[in-house]
Structures are given as structure tokens and as C-alpha cells.
Amino acid sequence: MIFGKNIRFNPDAIPGTAHQKARDRSRTKARFKSRRSLPFRLLVIASLFLIASFSASFSASAQTETFRARLSPMPTTPQTVNEITGGGEVILTLIGNTLTIEGSFEEMSSTAIAAHVHNAPPARLGPVVHTLKITDAIAGEITAQLQLSDDQVAELKANNFYIQIHSMNNPSGELRGWVFLRSHFQ
């Protein structure tokens, strides 16, 4: 992970990722999971290719855009810091109006019970606009393939989507992360 990267003349870009062991473990797990779910990923890639080809027949201008959400604990306090835990990463691929979501999470305090895409600007709260599939465990994967409206595509590109995971101990939410263009983090 990039640690302490410098940026020149580009104040809006946000560099690097964290360097801590916990996140390293998270990445290691994510890579391991990636190997275990290779058939699934191949299927997704094939689907994306087909979708892309299909979309291309209608719109030669359809492009692939990749977004990312870093999942981190919901607002916490010294009282709750050991009860709202975990982290994760979600990659979102947009082709036309089709949004493919793949992600992983780990080290939550209790079993995940739901995951949603919400609509609100960064650090604001907003309504659920889509429901995602999620592993019912304290660590696992998040997946979905969504058809977005044109308005929703605009909201996605305006950083007005966030992903939230709810758990048994924290039904109102345990992990959350706003969706930005992946290049924003590079």
C-alpha cells in the first residue's frame, strides 16, 4: 500500500492507501478470496464482456468506468469503538447503465445481515436505492449487478452513492464507504 505519497498541483486527488497491518491482512484475505472465487470472477468478466458488447451495439460511446468504496466503521465513540469494527473494499464497474459490484469485508463485530447502496453526498445520509447480496458472516463478499437510471448514473459520478453494511449487532449499520472514481485514490 502506498504510504505517505506526495501530490503536486493536484489538491483534489487523494493518495495511497493505509499501511497498517490490519489492512494488510485485509488485502491478503481479499487476494486469497479472489483466488478461491476465480470461476465466479471469470463468469462476471464474461458477463461484463457480453454486456459491454451488447451495449456497444446500441451506443458506440459506452465506456467502462471503475469506482471504488473504502468500507470503514460507522461513526463511533470511545464507548462503541470495540463494537463497530471491520473494514473492506468494494469495486464498482459501470458500463453504460449497468453497474457491477464486487467487494469484500472482514472483522465485523457480528454477522452481516444486509448491504445497500444509498444515495447521498459524502458524509451525508440518504435513502437506500439498491440492495446488494452479502455473505452472512463477519467476513465475506458483496456482489450485485444493477441497472441504474440515467439520474442514478449521474449521482454515482457525482460521488453521491455510498455502500453500507448492516450487522446483527449494528442493524443500523456497521461499515460504510462513499463511492469515488477509482482514479481518485491513485
Binding site: I14, P15, G16, T17, A18, R23, R70, S72, P73, M74, P75, T76, T77, T80, P122, A123, N159, Y162, R176, G177, W178, F180, H184, F185
Partner: peptide, 13 residues
């Protein structure tokens, strides 16, 4: 009363 969280878009920095 206050609760705290990572700043969106900062990648946890």
C-alpha cells in the same frame, strides 16, 4: 454528543 468517522474520499488518511 459526538461520533467520529473517516473522511470520505481520503482513503482513511
Amino acid at each position: 454528543s459526538r461520533k467520529f468517522f473517516e473522511m470520505p474520499g481520503t482513503n482513511g488518511n
